[in-house]
Design a protein around this nucleic acid. Structure first.
Lengths: 145, 145
DNA sequence: TTGAGTGCAAAGCTTTTGCAGTTTC
DNA sequence: GAAACTGCAAAAGCTTTGCACTCAA
């Protein structure tokens, strides 16, 4: 699912309205995220952006900055680390994630309202939620049959 | 929700059937998990078990061993680390987790079948899933109104 | 020119690993 | 007595922090 114009427009608007500065590195990172259109790890993103010399710290800070303005979503892996994905401003997605290669498929389902309502009933505020499905994808699955 | 006899029976059966050895430390850890009946961190568990002198490595290895026989579930926190909880053999729960104090409430809802079916349709095998709700609980919520 | 971004080095944290010594069954 | 458990020390791994320097607007 490639990004449509509306999506791009909102991303750029959000950045404009923020106090973030668009450096070359950030442009490359943003471009890669846009082109990729799926979650990646910080270090994979550095490579994909063609910035192998750039310190990972910079990538992390960029992702943190983007997350701060609501255009990046963090997806935890089962074992360790996480993936980062460009999202509609302050929206989010859920995924099927391959344990082996970290390939993801978007999950077209979100229980936000349901969970939010239940959480509030229990006295929770500032509610967010996590829902990810892990498995071994077709390409990683050993042919043992 | 305190554990019923059936639950206890299954836990002990599972341990008996395993190759695990029941040492004093493990007994204390298991007792604490049973008494507590909610998720805790490894280090909190060590304290609750009255084993402040015991190396955390031992707690982690015990949890790992228990997880291996399917009686422990790991619940990831939003930021870092995770909580551990005794569960019905190879069953699992979802939770509302307080970001501040890590207090949890069990969420009586699981999309296992739905998600499993969708995952398989996408070619994923050995599917598991994560669903946790994070927020600030009533006790931790600042009285700003 | 001033606040923001970057690099380097180092720390932070939970969790894991290796190995030698100890204990359980 | 063999297999499992424990402790100590150290590593692992991703992510964060501090500080000085550079750069974008």
């Amino acid at each position: 699912m490639k990004h449509n114009k509306e999506f791009l427009k909102r991303i750029f608007e959000t950045i404009e309205l923020s106090s973030l500065r668009m450096t070359q590195k950030r442009e490359r990172i943003l471009e890669s995220l846009l082109a990729l259109d799926r979650p990646v790890s910080a270090s994979a993103l550095r490579d994909l952006a063609g910035l192998p010399e750039t310190d990972l710290v910079t990538v992390y800070r960029t992702l943190e900055a983007f997350e701060g303005i609501g255009i990046i979503q963090k997806i935890p892996l089962e074992e360790m680390g996480c993936l980062y994905e460009l999202t509609e401003t302050n929206d989010h997605y859920h995924h099927f994630v391959c344990r082996e290669c970290h390939r993801t498929e978007r999950l077209d389902l979100c229980l936000e309202d349901e969970l939010g309502a239940r959480a509030e009933k229990l006295g929770f505020t500032e509610v967010s939620h996590l829902m990810e499905v892990y498995g071994v994808c077709g390409e990683c699955k050993p042919e043992t049959d």
